[in-house]
Amino acid sequence: MHMMGVLDTLHLWLLPSGLLTTLYMWHAYVCGTIVALTATLVGYFVVLRGVAFMAHSLPKIGFAGVAGATVLQVPPLVGLLTFNLLGGLVMSTLSRRGRRDVVTALTLVLALGAGELFLTLGQAYGETAYALLFGQIVGISGPQVGQTLAVGLVTTGLWMILYRPLLFVTVARDQALARGVRERLLDNLFAILVGLVCVMTVPVVGALLGFSLLIGPVATASLVTRRGVHTLLLAGALGLAAIWLALLLAYDSGWPVGFFATTIIVLEYKVVYIGRWVKTRRALAI
């Protein structure tokens, strides 16, 4: 009875607002779903390998890619793919040579500066910059949904191929090397994997906030479960919940979707963290 009441209210609230009847909102939902799921898959390895800084930097490089594409008047996808994949490869090469801190930071600044220049040259100030950095759901077109789906499928495929050796070399490096795992190849392929995810996240939640979608849900899930499959399932559910709710709130308030997405993801993490803390305290007290 009570449940029905809630559903009814939700229904009444959704219908007149046009949430599910507007075409671009459907696009946003489909894209958001693909992004949340693939980000979870790749985020699993980002957290496991401890490369949060890389996940933080690659989308910013992607920003320069889109801005450049606007100037050259080529599709944004081309700019994103070129910059993210190249940026990922450069970063994985540089980090192998040590000194990764300074070089990564400066390369990143170079890419961001280039993005700024492209924006200025393309006479696309303010609005475009904001959309690229913090995401925009209004502008997602039908073909863009198709592209996201295609990139999402490629990412998932590559992830499945890489899964076993990547896990092996991450948790038992010496053993894996002795067994013939090719570390350099895997490092590069992993960078491409992160790059591909950023290709999808930048248009939806923006260059600055895609990072939280990548690491947040997995970090939250691994507080609760230590089993690979469970972590993935739980993180996927958390990511989906965050992006769906964020889209709903963004649509309703007109506020940026990236703000809601990051806030919900961080809230999820905090709630679970506090929950776990209370539980261990209680267990210790008994």
Partner: peptide, 8 residues
């Protein structure tokens, strides 16, 4: 990233 979301 929470602060950056707030900044957004």
């Amino acid at each position: 990233s929470f602060f950056m979301g707030l900044g957004a």
